[in-house]
Design a protein around this nucleic acid. Structure first.
Lengths: 192, 192
DNA sequence: GTCTATAGGATGATAGAC
DNA sequence: GTCTATCATCCTATAGAC
């Protein structure tokens, strides 16, 4: 019989994200998800045609937002490094459960062909952040954004505002060209 | 019959590391490993008592070295931030296949109880690198070391020396306290 | 050291009743 | 929408022959 007053589809997504994040995608069976909801695997298949489709619905919103962010850069005047770094932090933070639990999962990256997408995204962002596509320069951007992400994973209990301020600050310094130490070196970057 | 002129045990380790890195630990079956070596699963079990033990033999050397590095800090005079960051880069680089392929695998981290180990390690290293255990300060260390790791993953084709120079440099800047821009702020850190 | 054969179990997915 | 029952497939691991 139908369960009362519930949006089963949404509940499945919620439980799936929880379990995928905790245990990994492959290590979580549809049986587990169904059991926690008090339904059967077959009912689950009524709502999602496959395990992979369920995964996609969890991850795609983040991917889409990342893509939209990259699109907005370059086109419009969205080129201020600090603004970009801050927005990237906010995006990672908003989707932190997906970020931590799913984007780091080997199988998820394979299944959704995420590696190429992310590399491509990074290339575009790096170019704007350090104004170069030479590896020696892009390294700075990778340290900045990669390090930024890690703070969200490693400090789940630090208040968001405090974390954001400290992390963005450190990331901005990582972005500075090698001749750093001279605050005026790149105007908007070095100033606060 | 025994295969000629081969060290099967070592070959298993090599092939396992390759496949685990490419596909993830759980996604790689012992059948696959055995097939690639031209032996059977049963032979594999002769050399390694379980899949988990095989995994442990691949990962433990790295864990041990990380631990040894943390032990050397504090005790002896091994406290120069740049030296620590450089050694951390070298360690990550030397074990990059394990680092990229296994430490990022959810199931591996679970199975080897790696999360607590890594968090503990980071706490000790952070304290030496930024001289504080306040989150606002530790963030700098996390950005520095986390970002450093990412460069190894994202730039597999950049010559090691070039990568190291650029990555360590960016990481060192991320470590600077918020009042950065004044090169003399922390002596050895800011100078090159 | 390596083999064949198999136990024992979990999994994703489907068919068809209600 | 949810169920029961089942399929086909894969897995880790073991027993015992050679």
């Amino acid at each position: 019989m139908p369960r009362l007053n519930t949006d089963t589809r949404a509940e499945i997504r919620t439980v799936a994200l929880e379990l995928f994040s905790e245990q990994g995608y492959e290590q979580t069976s549809l049986r587990e998800i169904a059991e926690r909801l008090g339904i059967t695997k077959a009912a689950l298949y009524y709502h999602f045609s496959s395990k992979s489709v369920l995964l996609g619905e969890l991850v795609h919103p983040l991917i889409d937002e990342l893509r939209a962010m990259a699109d907005r850069m370059g086109e419009s005047g969205f080129t201020d490094p600090r603004a970009i770094v801050e927005e990237y932090f906010d995006l990672c933070f908003r989707y932190r459960q997906v970020f931590i639990g799913l984007l780091n999962d080997v199988h998820v990256r394979r299944e959704l062909e995420l590696v190429e997408a992310m590399i491509h995204w990074r290339e575009r962002v790096d170019a704007v952040l350090v104004g170069s596509d030479a590896p020696a320069d892009r390294v700075r951007s990778v340290v900045a954004l990669g390090g930024l992400q890690d703070t969200i994973i490693l400090f789940p209990d630090v208040p968001a505002a405090e974390l954001r301020a400290a992390a963005v600050d450190a990331a901005m310094r990582a972005l500075l060209p090698e001749t750093a130490g001279t605050p005026a070196a790149k105007g908007a970057i070095a100033s606060e």
